[in-house]
Every structure is written in C-alpha cells, then in structure tokens.
Simulated scan of single mutants.
Amino acid sequence: MSESTTNDRLRELSEHGVSIWLDDLSREALTSGELMSHTKELHVVGVTTNPTIFAAALAEGSAYDKQMAHLAEQGTSIDDAVITVTTDDVRHACDLFTDVYEATGGEDGRVSIEVDPRLANSTEKTIEQARVLWSTVDRPNAFVKIPATMEGLPAITQAISEGISINVTLIFSLDRYRAVAAAYLDGLELAHRAGIDLSTIRSVASFFVSRVDTEVDKRLDAIGTDEAKALKGKAGIANARLAFQAYEEIFSTPRWEELAAAGAHPQRPLWASTGVKDPAYPDTMYVDELVVDGVVNTMPEKTLLAAGDHAQLRGDTVHGTYAESRQVLDSLERLGVSYTDVTDTLEQEGVVKFERSWAELVETVDAALKGDTATQKAAE
C-alpha cells in the first residue's frame, strides 16, 4: 500500500463529507508523533476512546510508569488515578488537534472521554462525572461520552444545557436515536434560555453498526433458511441508513430551525463499531456502505488502514436507500427476528461490556500504582 494511494482514498472519503476519526488513543501514540502523522497522512480529524483502549495502552510499554509511580507516592486512589491519567491523555490529544478544531470551526478536532459506565443507570451521578471530566480536561474540543440509556437521556439534556459538548454513545435503535436527538434539542433550548452561546456546544450521536449484524446474524443462523441466510450482514447498514433518514427529518423541523438561527449546530450522526466482526464480510463494509455528507466514521486503526488501502468508494451510499433499508428490517420481523428484542439485548450487553472494560481499566491502574508494570514484568 503506497502512501499516495492511502491518501487518495481517505481524502476522497473526506471530500464526500465523512469526518474520519480514529477509535484509539495511547500516550505512546501521542508522544511518538504517530497520532499527528495520522492527521497528516490518513486524514484523521478526531479521536474516540473507551476504557478498553485505555487499559490496553496502560498495560503495554512503559509510557505511564513515571506518572503512576508519582501518583502512588502521593497516595492517589485508584478512581482518581484513572481520571488523572485518562484526562491527561485526552487533554494532550485535544491540544494536538487544536489546529483542526479551529480550521473546521469546532466541528472536528474532537477527542472523546467516557464517563464511568458503572454510572449508566444513574442520571445524577452521570451528570456529576460529566462535569468533572469536562472541567478537568478543560479544552473546548473535548467530548464527554454519555451512554444512551434511559437514565442517560436526562443527563445528556442537563450536560448540554450547561454548555458541555457530548458524544452520546451506545445507540442501537431508531427510537432511542430519536430520543437522543430530542434530549439534545431540549438541552439546547435550556442553554439558550440560560444565555449560553449555542455556537460553543457540539454533539455527536454514536450509532453502533457491526454489533447489530453480529446479533442479528446469530439469530438468522438459528433460523437457517435460505431467506434468513440472504439477510445476513444487511441489518447493521440498513439500521444506520434509517438513522440518517431520521437525522434529516429531525434537523429540518421548525423547532430545529429556530435553534439554528440562534447559533446551534446539528448533532451529527457518528458511525461507531465499524470494525467488521465477521471475517466473511469485506473489512471496509461499514465504511463503503455508509458514505454521506455530514457524518463521522470512527474507525479502529485496522479498519482505517484497510479503508486507505482498498475502500470501494462509490459516492453517497445512503440517500436513495431508505425504502430498501426499511424492507430489510421488515423482512427480519417477518422471519421472527424482533428488532426491539435485538436492540434491547445489544444495549444491555453494551452496558455490561463497558462495565467489564472499566473493571479491566481499574485493575490495570491498580497494578500500575503498585509498580506491577509491563516493563517490570518483562524484566522478571
């Protein structure tokens, strides 16, 4: 893969209106220049992260050893150490993306940090930690990630009303997506009444893609008919395309137009979980089939490099697909694959997975505070 080819494909994707964000962050990538290289060579204009990514970064190499030793000397608690280390990395990344942030008028150059997923079912605690993370990172181009649970919805509204920019994560269903957008609009209206400059507030709605196919395909395999097999690998893309249709409807209403006139920005859809889980599918499927102006695609590095190498870009692959996409979901229902049950299951599993990831991160930080680092392990 030549650098020029990679540049060409990813540049073309960007020119189609897709903001390319990297779903990965580590201190080594920050300090080595790797992240900056990605911005220049791979058209990366933002970063998302999560507890799993941070845990992996902490467990590898020695980039965090000095800070961990210092925190241990100070008697820092595990939870405080987690916040210190992760917010330091996010702040550093925000600084690296300052030029992108300014050049895009605040649309890109964004770096996300997630609230403790153990708080996903507590509105008040989520709001409290969103405030802490926002003030600790202290950068206008940060995003605080709040899950789209029922308890998360009022937390989203409250955070937006206080001028905190939010990345809403863990969205699977169209109904929940609409509720997330409504929560955003509610927050903007409250912020406007409070005299906050709406132009300073940004948000993305992270709609998960590949996990939908994983769950639906499992159910289709259990049915086992030819009709069921023919629908494999179609649900995730159809669902995301219909979410974009909903986005267009929501952000063209009189209610939205009034907020836009006051300086508000639309809450962009973000395609998350875009790494292909089934090796039988093209590894750039969730890039190629979700190209449309005005969205973000956050990719793990493997998917990013694959897209640069051999993405099959055909222009806009979302508009003109809504009837076909609805037919896919209707066909699944006729076969007995319940859309509501699928999305409810995915949300519940998603919260559990996030909690496990957080436990892994806490365990990794605990080990590092005790001096049980990867470098020391290698030396033993």
Score class of each variant (00 low, 15 high):
175 D>F: 15
132 V>Y: 05
18 V>P: 01
273 S>I: 00
157 T>A: 03
346 L>R: 06
215 E>G: 04
65 D>V: 06
333 E>C: 11
120 A>T: 08
83 I>E: 06
84 T>H: 08
251 F>R: 05
182 A>S: 14
56 A>S: 14
8 D>P: 07
126 T>R: 00
261 A>I: 10
334 R>W: 10
127 I>W: 05
242 L>N: 08
86 T>H: 06
358 W>G: 04
90 V>W: 03
137 V>Y: 05
156 I>P: 05
94 C>K: 05
217 D>G: 01
327 Q>F: 12
174 L>G: 08
10 L>N: 01
131 R>Q: 14
118 R>D: 09
284 T>Q: 13
5 T>F: 11
348 Q>H: 10
250 I>K: 12
247 Y>C: 07
57 A>T: 02
296 V>N: 15
88 D>W: 08
40 K>S: 10
107 E>F: 06
103 A>P: 01
151 E>Y: 01
215 E>L: 04
109 G>F: 00
288 D>L: 13
256 W>A: 09
215 E>M: 05
7 N>M: 15
293 D>R: 15
57 A>D: 09
25 L>G: 05
356 R>M: 08
369 L>H: 07
349 E>T: 07
83 I>L: 07
68 M>W: 09
179 A>Y: 15
304 L>A: 04
9 R>D: 13
68 M>C: 12
178 R>A: 15
147 P>G: 14
190 L>E: 15
83 I>T: 09
374 A>D: 09
82 V>S: 01
83 I>K: 03
308 G>A: 07
150 M>E: 15
287 V>G: 02
202 R>L: 11
7 N>F: 13
130 A>M: 04
263 G>T: 15
190 L>Q: 10
214 T>K: 12
69 A>S: 13
91 R>F: 14
271 W>V: 09
142 A>Q: 10
284 T>V: 05
226 D>L: 14
61 G>I: 01
110 R>D: 06
43 H>Y: 14
183 A>D: 02
114 E>P: 10
314 R>N: 12
327 Q>L: 10
342 V>L: 14
291 V>E: 01
291 V>Q: 03
34 E>S: 11
106 G>N: 13
53 I>V: 03
357 S>E: 04
87 T>W: 04
282 P>T: 11
290 L>Y: 10
